[in-house]
Nucleic acid binder design. Structure first.
Ligand code: MN
Ligand code: MN
Length: 531
DNA sequence: CGCCCCCCCG
DNA sequence: TTCACACCATCCG
DNA sequence: GATGGTGTGTCTCGGGGGGGCGAC
């Protein structure tokens, strides 16, 4: 909780990251290393301003509105401009100009308007040249080197959704990531993988911009397909990108393009989309064959369930017969009550007249218990799993071999669950309280946890943990209702009028019934229908 | 003038 | 940096 | 019932400032 001593704390943090990077040779390209060396030679003011700007969201700034007392702004701006890392005569698009200029300035430029928003319709039509002139005459500053700094961010964090502010948040105790022995690994096998991941992120960014347009971006698609497919990180990124592109092609009825993209993607639902594309493209026979294959070699319950919904339709289209298979029917209760606000609290209140204690937790309770019980497994210092100090989960958490690489530890954990009656969970709850960890919601009180452990048997916990471990996290029922006197509980999915069970919710309920875990659906009906 | 939204700061 | 969920529209048997 | 499209909350904290905007 000590205040950060230096006014240049953020620059010190960035240097820590640079030191981290320089210890991992062969990760960055030679040009990156040269850039870093050049950065290190610059005066402190220039370094500091550059880092300040990269930690802010826009690309364009007004120099007069930069308020950093620790920095000699004009010295820094001159240095950075000479280096070409920022520009003062950058072309502004109308949208950028709209955000950068204040209403009074727009009034002066284009005549007064009642609101700033009213300027937009005028500006959208103007040529960029207007604002280019304006930018040159005023104190606009554009950060032109964000890509270089983003590369370093990707190299350090292994992703682009964390930023340099992680350092200060941790230092101030706002976040508290698990303290795990780090090794000298990083998020990437080698420079090749890093480079490809960087490229994949770039393509994703371009795709996000382009995909709203109607035209099919052939070159972008070709580049995405050409991405190498080595290593789980890159495979995931590439598969996601290709699946997103395929979905777009499918919506525009470009089925053969969609199919070739899906064929390259190992995204979870890729095969299902392929079947739909074949079906919609008139290749019913092929769709049927792929569906039959998928029925036997499915990867997840969701894939199996979907294909069982498709097969009757496809069979019928081909004049074949398909046996009617009755679907699992979860238990339900109808509640007639007036509904104002969210249905879950209403249902909880209504149901609790039987003395139960409801908690509206969805996935949160069980993922919390899961991580607390398996803390030492999840945060085991496996080689390559932890490499920077701000990880809420091991780097291979999403990888296919996450479980098998720790199989001994998992079975020990499940063994321990049989005998220790939640001691592990409570111990970690108190020992780790507040630590940023995957799945853990610290708003759950110790009483909640104790109540859960009192009411839920170890067998049930174990069954639920098994399924979470297989990668199923979505779709847990809205409410858990405790009956401490009976040492029992039930899980309730609340459905308002006009809502229906989602596939993932059905799967959980089917699973609960297999293991004797009490569950039901609470259907809230309109009071008027009761009469 | 008060409110709200967005963004920044540490 | 999405993702999980609710809600709604459409078509079908 | 199947399918798919859209909307919504949340984006690790809590405090504060700038600016837009409508009410008075
Ligand atoms: Mn829910
Ligand atoms: Mn619900």
């Amino acid at each position: 909780m000590l205040p950060t001593p230096s006014p240049f704390y953020y620059l010190a943090h960035f240097h820590q990251a640079l030191d981290w990077l320089s210890l991992r040779e062969g990760l960055l390209a030679p040009e990156d290393a040269l850039w870093i060396a050049r950065f290190r030679r610059q005066p402190q003011d220039a370094q500091a301003l550059l880092i300040r700007l990269t930690m802010r969201s826009p690309a364009h700034f007004r120099i007069s509105r930069l308020d950093y007392p620790e920095i000699d702004i004009s010295l820094a701006v001159n240095t950075l401009t000479d280096l070409g890392w920022i520009a003062q005569d950058h072309l502004l698009t109308p949208s950028e100009a709209f955000h950068l200029l204040r209403k009074a300035e727009l009034d002066a430029l284009h005549g007064a308007q009642p609101t700033k928003q009213a300027h937009w319709s005028v500006m959208a039509g103007r040529s960029d040249q207007t604002f280019h002139q304006w930018a040159r005459q005023h104190d606009c500053l554009t950060l032109t080197i964000r890509d270089q700094l983003d590369r370093l961010r990707l190299a350090f964090f292994g992703n682009l959704h964390q930023g340099w502010e992680s350092f200060v948040l941790e230092e101030l105790g706002i976040t508290r990531f698990p303290k795990i022995e780090m090794d000298m690994s990083c998020g990437f096998e080698d420079q090749q993988e890093f480079e490809s991941c960087w490229q994949a992120h770039q393509l994703f960014e371009q795709w996000e911009v382009v995909k709203s347009r109607r035209k099919v971006p052939r070159t972008l698609i070709a580049q995405a397909i050409a991405l190498p497919n080595q290593g789980p990180t890159l495979r995931r990124l590439r598969s996601k990108l290709l699946a997103s592109m395929a979905r777009h092609a499918e919506r525009q009825a470009h089925y053969s393009l969609a199919l070739s993209l899906l064929n390259e993607s190992s995204y979870e639902a890729a095969r299902l989309r392929s079947i739909r594309c074949l079906e919609k493209g008139g290749q019913t026979e092929q769709a049927w064959r792929l569906a039959l294959q998928t029925r036997c070699f499915y990867q997840a319950d969701s894939e199996r369930d979907s294909v069982f919904r498709m097969l009757p339709r496809l069979s019928k289209a081909l004049g074949k017969t398909w046996p009617r298979i009755s679907r699992h029917q979860p238990n339900g209760v109808e509640v007639f009550t007036e509904l104002n606000g969210r249905p879950e609290p209403t249902a909880a209140q209504w149901l609790d007249r039987d003395g139960g204690i409801s908690l509206f937790s969805e996935n949160r309770l069980f993922t919390t218990l899961f991580t607390l019980h398996f803390w030492d497994v999840i945060y085991a210092p496996i080689p390559g799993a932890f490499f920077h100090p701000f990880q809420a989960a091991p780097a291979d958490f999403q990888h296919p071999d996450f479980v098998s690489r720790r199989s001994e530890l998992w079975s020990q954990g499940f063994e321990q669950l049989k005998t220790d009656a939640g001691r592990q969970i409570l111990w970690n709850y108190h020992r780790q309280f507040g630590t940023t960890a995957w799945g853990v919601d610290w708003r759950l009180s110790a009483e909640h946890i104790e109540l859960a452990l009192h009411c839920i048997s170890a067998d049930h916990l174990s069954a639920i943990f098994q399924r979470i471990l297989m990668g199923h996290r979505k779709g847990m029922p809205d409410l858990i209702r405790f009956f401490p006197a009976q040492k029992s509980y039930e899980l309730v999915e609340v459905k308002g009028p006009g809502d229906a069970l989602q596939p993932h919710q059905r799967q959980w309920m089917r699973y609960f019934d297999q293991y004797g875990i009490p569950n039901r659906v609470c259907w809230i009906r309109d009071l008027a229908d009761a009469v």
